[in-house]
Simulated scan of single mutants.
Amino acid sequence: MKYQGKSHKFGSDVNTDYIISGKYKFKTLDMNELAKHVMEDLDPDFYNKVTPGDFIVAGTNFGCGSSREQAPLAIKHANISAVLAKSFARIFYRNAINTGLPVIECDTDLIDPGDVLDVDLTNGIIINRTKDIEITVKPLPQVMIKILTDGGLAAHFRKYGGFNLE
C-alpha cells in the first residue's frame, strides 16, 4: 500500500473532540458531512486545505478521548490517506484499522507542515520528498495490511467470512 500527499501537522494529545467536535457527532451519521468539520477546532480551514491523499501528522497520543468510531471515519472521508504520529491512543488505533484508515507510528519530528510525503505501508518506509530524507517505520503486520486493503474489518469479514491470515 503506497500513498503520496502533503502533510498537515498538529501537536500532541489531539483528542477525538478536536478531530470531530461533539457538536457534530450527535447531529448526523453522514460521514461526508462530518468530514467537512474534521480538525476545525484546531484549524478552521482544514477541510478546504486538504487534497485527496494528504496526511495528518501529529505528535504523541493522537486520538485520545472517546471510543467512538466517528473520528477515524470522518478523517477517512475527509480524503486523508493516513495518519502519522509518534503514538496513538490504543482505542483510536484499533478503530482506525477497523474502519480502513491507515495509522503509522513514526518519528514525526522530521516532517513539517506542507512537506510532500511518499508512504509505503508494506515496507515501512516514508520518504519526505521535500527534505529528501527517508524515515523508516516498523511495517504493519500482514493481517492489518490485508484489513486496510479490504477497506476495514467489516469489509474483510464480508470478503472472507472471518479473519484471513494467509
Score class of each variant (00 low, 15 high):
L29C: 01
E40P: 00
K76L: 14
A89N: 07
L101D: 02
T16L: 11
K146Y: 06
T136F: 05
P113W: 04
A85H: 05
K23I: 13
F10C: 10
A78Q: 02
I80C: 04
G59D: 07
G5H: 02
S21R: 13
D41K: 15
P72F: 12
I126M: 01
T99H: 07
V137Y: 12
T149S: 15
F55G: 10
M39V: 01
I145F: 04
T122Q: 14
D150T: 09
F55W: 04
D112Y: 13
P52G: 08
I135S: 03
V38R: 07
L148W: 10
I126V: 11
K9H: 01
V38L: 03
I80S: 06
I19K: 03
I133Q: 10
V116N: 12
V103Y: 12
K49E: 14
A78C: 10
N128R: 10
Q142K: 08
A96H: 02
R129M: 11
V14Y: 11
K76G: 01
G65S: 05
N48H: 14
N123L: 04
T136L: 13
P102N: 09
I133E: 11
L29S: 15
I127T: 15
M144Y: 11
P141R: 06
N123F: 11
V137S: 10
K2T: 14
G22R: 10
V50E: 11
M31E: 14
N128D: 04
D45G: 07
V57E: 09
N15V: 00
F55P: 07
A89Y: 01
P44Y: 05
I145E: 08
A78N: 08
I111M: 04
N128T: 02
A58V: 00
P102R: 02
I56T: 00
N48T: 13
D150E: 07
N48W: 15
H156Q: 04
N32W: 03
T130W: 01
A35L: 06
K131P: 00
N98Q: 03
T136E: 14
E166H: 12
G11F: 14
G22W: 10
G5T: 05
F163G: 07
V57K: 10
N98V: 12
T60Q: 13
I125Q: 11
A154G: 06
Q142C: 01
L140R: 03
F46M: 11
F163L: 14
K25S: 14
Y160F: 15
